[in-house]
Structures are given as C-alpha cells and as structure tokens.
Amino acid sequence: MDALPDTLEKCGVLPHGVRDEAANAPPYAEGGGMGLSPGSSRIPGRIVLRRGSGWSTNAIRIEVFMEQLMRNFTLNFFGKGIHKVSPEAFLKGKNGYLLDVRSKEESASIFIKLEFHSNIECQNIPINEVPDRIDEIPKEKSIAVFCPANVRSSIVYAYLLLKGYPDVRILEGGYSALTDALRPGSVLKAVQNK
C-alpha cells in the first residue's frame, strides 16, 4: 500500500496532503450506530466503519485512493493525454513492456510478439488473470496496456496505478494504430537496429 500514494502523486492524480490523511486516518469510527460517518474524516467522502464491520483499514484506504484517482480524471488530465501513449512513441521508447489484456483466444488469433523490437517485452495476461498474475508484471518498465477498444486496458491501467506501478499508460488506437506503427519502414528500422 505504501507505493500507491507515491505513484499517484508522481502521476499527478493525488494532491499533496491527501496521502498523509489517508495513511493516518483512524481505522474505525468512534461511537455507535452503523459506524458510517462520512463527515468524520477530513478526506471528502471517506466512510469510516466501526469495529466488527468486517472491513479492513486497507480496504478503506484503497477506496479513498480510488475515489481520489477518479476525481482527478478531469478534462485537463484526459485532454493532455497523460494516461495514454501512441504505438509509435511506445515502440521508440526504452525498457518497454506491452501488456496485452485480451483473452487467450483473442491473443491466439492475432498474436503480438514484436520480435524485432528488442526494447519491448510483450506478454498476454487476460484481464481476469491480472490480479492473480500481478507479480509477472515488472514495475521497473514502462508499461503500455493493450486491448482493441481500450475498455479492458483502461480498467487494468487504473488497477496498476492502484497497485503502485509508477509508469503505466494505455496504448491508444487498438489494432489499427498498432498495425499502422508496424508498417514495413518501421519494422525495417527495428530490424536494422537489432
């Protein structure tokens, strides 16, 4: 959990100060009743649960961070494209990791290998397997999450931010943008540079 606030601050989605409030917030509300007290913390919208409620402090922190993440997904954030990377820019980068979150069947039908792009490692981990296989995704690489319509990749993007991954983006454009970036001239350059 400690890496999450650092990651969110680096990505510009968590304002300074909120991380300290979330980390130091009491795990349970004081008093009786249902224990739901949205106004009991300085963090807007935070629900603090009473003892015996079954919710852990970490679950509440995750909720707080996810809410803050969503609050900062503004027009400015999306307008600047902070959350995405073009295939051309990603293929030119260093130490890249293409995370293909399509199903096994989709991946078997159109397999993405990028064999001649030695700067990119590719792996298919279907979205439903990502939580169980999170340790296979390297934190030290620039991650581009891929799916054809950017729905699944958007979900995994937010999940990886939540898990503390510092450099993750959505690979924009789906199949057509990726195949455009892999036209013969681009592939020839990659082969010559290998």
Rank of each mutant, 00 (worst) to 15 (best):
K84W: 00
A177L: 05
D132E: 15
F78Y: 11
L114V: 06
I112P: 02
A23G: 11
S186E: 15
A25K: 08
A22E: 04
S53W: 03
K94L: 06
L98D: 03
P27S: 11
Y97N: 00
G39K: 10
G173H: 10
K113I: 10
C122E: 03
S118D: 08
G54S: 01
I82S: 14
N95R: 11
G45K: 10
S53R: 05
S107K: 06
Y157I: 00
V187I: 15
I43V: 15
P38S: 04
F116V: 08
A144S: 05
L99D: 00
Y97H: 01
P5A: 05
M34R: 10
L99W: 00
V85A: 00
A181C: 03
A23M: 14
I127F: 09
S103W: 02
I112K: 06
G35Y: 08
I170G: 02
Y97F: 15
K113F: 05
P27Q: 09
I127C: 06
D20E: 14
A149Y: 12
D180G: 01
R133I: 03
D20H: 11
A144M: 03
G45Q: 06
K92R: 14
K104D: 15
I60M: 13
L69C: 06
R183M: 10
R19K: 15
D2L: 13
V48E: 09
A89H: 07
V101N: 00
N128D: 12
V13L: 05
K194E: 11
G33N: 04
A149C: 08
L114Q: 07
Y97A: 00
A29L: 06
